[in-house]
Design a protein around this nucleic acid. Structure first.
Lengths: 116, 116
DNA sequence: CAGTATCCCTGATGATACTG
DNA sequence: CAGTATCATCAGGGATACTG
């Protein structure tokens, strides 16, 4: 199944950075969590579902996710236009990794308070 | 050991976002990977080890990691000053989560190429 | 040695309006 | 419906110089 990879301290940092770059972006995680679990949503569905997002931002973030191979764009040639978005297999496989991060964050011990 | 957490789609996105916020920052991952494995390094050690970083950036990123409870700062009251940095236990526990991300990124199928 | 203090600049985001 | 186009804003980061 999973291949073995040998990372040095620097290539590891680089690799994680690459992953983070793909996830950074004001709206990407919210979009992703709307698509996890096999959801297939239209542009307008996402627009309605995500509070406060503009069309410009929505399309921009979707395009980046698409270029990174995380999201798939499905165009139905109709009038009026219909375009749907879903995760690629690889995009789906991101879920466990995010869960790991989520658990980690949830385990944060209470102390000096997170940067105010 | 690990507690159970119930997340909704939105709180999950929020939680991961919180985690990412702590890791975003031009130099944080590089710093972290220098400290993983129990390393204890002086300010000047980090400065030498990390190519291209300025004192301002180094201290800024370290402070943020410290405020987030990921890094611990150890001051030795001496002349000249000696300050060391290492990971907190919670900071160490981030390692597996990053590994998951790393593996995910390494599995990226070749296709449209990552955003040029 | 281990930081502070300034100034500057760019890229990411937001607001708004227009279109095939 | 599903986008493009334009303009304004603002925080993150870089360069540089100074200090307890």
């Amino acid at each position: 199944m999973s291949k073995k990879h040998n990372f040095t301290r620097d290539t590891a940092a680089e690799g994680v950075e690459k992953a983070l770059k793909m996830l950074e972006g004001r709206w990407k995680l919210i979009i992703l969590f709307h698509l996890f679990g096999g959801q297939v949503l239209r542009f307008s569905d996402l627009e309605k579902a995500i509070d406060g997002i503009s069309q410009k931002m929505l399309i921009q973030q979707l395009r980046q996710l698409e270029n990174d191979g995380i999201v798939r764009r499905i165009v139905h040639h109709q009038v009026p236009p219909k375009v749907e978005y879903c995760l690629t297999d690889w995009g789906q496989s991101l879920c466990p990794a995010l869960d790991a991060l989520l658990d980690w964050a949830a385990q944060q011990p209470a102390q000096t308070e997170t940067t105010p």
